[in-house]
């Protein structure tokens, strides 16, 4: 039995889409110019140049998410994240997942709880509005759905392997050193925001970017947002976080 499921989501910032948006007004302005006499054409040429400059500057500006600015000293940030990650042996938290689909008027909201224990043990459980459980225990993955438990060898399937890496690294805030993603670092008063763009073609087909919101007070991941190429997204907010409380290994074995 093979169960299809993945947490890997995506998008790519398509140059053609950007061109489609910018070329329209510029082209129409150029057409405009040919229909008018020389004196006016100078003025239109000037305004075209201004328009191009405005578009270019707005694109440059648009790359920085609203309300954030780039982190100047990324090395210090990375070192701090890694140091904080080393201090964590167990982690548990409630989570609220929101799925935004542009065609739907309401978001799909699901709630649950997760447990994490070093090394590589994760229990990710949905309680509302449905019961669904994924557990990762080193090289094994369990899925419990409709009361039925399925067990998989993570290494037997590339997709399971990527689910494992994504979930464990996300929970730990450990995606910094993943070579499959290009990382950008931003900050505002409250958060660091780590923006990861997938580099591999397969992932780019369905994931545009992952945004990790890292709380500046304790360097915990407060929110993860995974944006698809269509700009539909899944965001997960974490709350009631507890670190380094004892969690029995049995929690990660599903029967």
């Amino acid at each position: 039995m093979y169960k299809f499921n993945s947490n890997t989501i995506v998008f790519d910032i398509s140059a053609s889409t950007q061109n489609a948006q910018t070329d329209g007004p510029i082209e129409s302005m150029i057409k405009h110019r040919t229909e008018r006499h020389t004196e006016r054409s100078r003025s239109v040429l000037f305004s075209t140049t201004v328009t191009i400059i405005l578009f270019i500057s707005s694109f440059t500006f648009a790359q920085v998410p609203a309300g954030f600015k780039p982190v100047k000293d990324t090395t210090a940030f990375k070192q701090k994240m890694e140091a904080q990650s080393k201090l964590i042996s167990t982690l548990e938290s409630d989570f609220t997942q929101e799925k935004y689909l542009s065609v739907m008027s309401e978001k799909i909201i699901s709630k649950g709880h997760f447990h994490f224990k070093k090394v590589n043990m994760l229990r990710w459980e949905y309680n509302e509005p449905y019961k669904y459980l994924i557990a990762i225990n080193k090289d094994k993955m369990f899925i419990k759905d409709n009361g039925k438990v399925s067990k998989y060898d993570i290494n037997s399937n590339k997709m399971f392997k990527s689910i494992n890496e994504m979930m464990v690294n996300t929970v730990q805030g450990n995606l910094l050193n993943n070579k499959d993603y290009k990382a950008k670092f931003y900050e505002n008063e409250k958060f660091y925001m780590l923006e990861l763009s997938p580099l591999q073609k397969g992932a780019k087909d369905f994931l545009k970017v992952i945004q990790l919101y890292i709380n500046k007070t304790d360097y915990a991941v407060d929110k993860v947002k995974m944006i698809e190429p269509s700009d539909d997204y899944t965001s997960i907010d974490f709350s009631n976080r507890k670190t380094n409380q004892p969690i029995a290994d049995e929690k990660f074995i599903i029967k």
Binding site: K3, N7, M104, D145
Partner: peptide, 28 residues
Amino acid sequence: KDYSGLLVTKQMSPQDYRVIFTTELGMK
């Protein structure tokens, strides 16, 4: 083979329906 997830249907206009299937983890 089992595929599990969430199916959403939305009536956009009287004869127009959108049907989207995602995994529980949110992947479309």
